[in-house]
């Protein structure tokens, strides 16, 4: 899916915090919650949470290898919060305009 790389930032934003299935080159498939999409390389960052509070796993699929992205589940505030927390170092502030 060459079109994945051609989407606009606002379109990539629609995938953030949702659970998706990404089909990449050689039919490799990955599930996870979308943390972000790099607007430069179109790489998609997926997070999977382990049962019983184990360490989350992060998988990044490079933009050029993404063939299809299918939304499995809409996001919710709880997951969005969990995603935010794991990547924000203690004491970091959100950058304002």
């Amino acid at each position: 899916m060459d079109t994945w790389r051609q989407l606009k930032p606002l379109e990539w934003c629609k995938y953030v915090n949702k659970e998706v299935k990404v089909t990449a080159h050689e039919k490799q498939q990955h599930h996870g919650w979308v943390f972000t999409v790099d607007p430069v390389s179109a790489s998609i960052v997926l997070v999977t949470f382990q049962e019983k509070g184990g360490t989350p796993t992060v998988r990044v699929v490079t933009g050029h290898a993404v063939q299809e992205v299918e939304v499995l589940q809409e996001g919710n505030e709880e997951t969005a919060g969990r995603l935010r927390v794991i990547f924000t170092p203690p004491g970091a502030h959100t950058l304002g305009p």
Binding site: F35, V37, D38, P39, V40, V45, I86
Partner: peptide, 20 residues
């Protein structure tokens, strides 16, 4: 709006690289 979206997405991606 597009620039705001772009910077938010990019900041998160840079945080991913830092975490890695």
């Amino acid at each position: 709006e597009e620039q705001r979206a772009r910077s938010a997405l990019r900041e998160s991606f840079l945080r991913t690289l830092i975490a890695m």
